[in-house]
Amino acid sequence: MKRGDGWLGAFWIALGGYVVFSGFRLGFGSFASPGPGFIAVFAGALLVLFAAGLLASSMARRRPAPPGPFWEEPGAARRVLLTLAGPVGFTLLLNHLGFFLCTLLLLIYLFRAIHPHRWRLTLLLAVSSALACLVVFQYLLQVQFPGGLLEVHRLKGWLF
């Protein structure tokens, strides 16, 4: 049994129970005329059943091994959280700063925050990659990313 298995088993059971309850609320119908909640009831029930089996088998082990640490290497949790902060920041700022600036900042952050590279390499890679992404995705593939701060009409508004 791993650390977290018990909590997760209980979570699956609760989730399955919610799905069964919602399935009945949506309308189970009948076997001859299944309603919109028909499959949800069965899928939720299966989730509860399998999770209960998982929980029971992990609890019933005769000599359960002591659960190991969740993060084995020192600093692992910090690295994971720092990495995750990059795309979270990108998503939060995309509409405000626009695609180009967000890409630039994301790359600079990820090149520096976890295993820091030299500033010169960081800036060279980040600027060239952000420009390349802008050209390829926005201009060649016509993907409509938010312009943000660098949108032409906003710049015009500021300048004139």
């Binding site: 699956w12 989730l15 399955g16 799905v19 919602s22 949506l26 309308g27 309603g35 919109p36 909640g37 499959i39 949800a40 899928a43 939720g44 299966l46 989730l47 399998f50 999770a51 089996g53 998982l54």
Partner: peptide, 24 residues
């Protein structure tokens, strides 16, 4: 098995094609 059941639940999300009701 838990993952397969969870996958079916996630597949339910959206509009029911027969009744038109929104689910989850």
């Amino acid at each position: 098995l838990v993952m397969a059941a969870l996958g079916i639940v996630l597949g339910i999300v959206g509009t029911d094609t027969i009744s038109g009701r929104s689910r989850f």
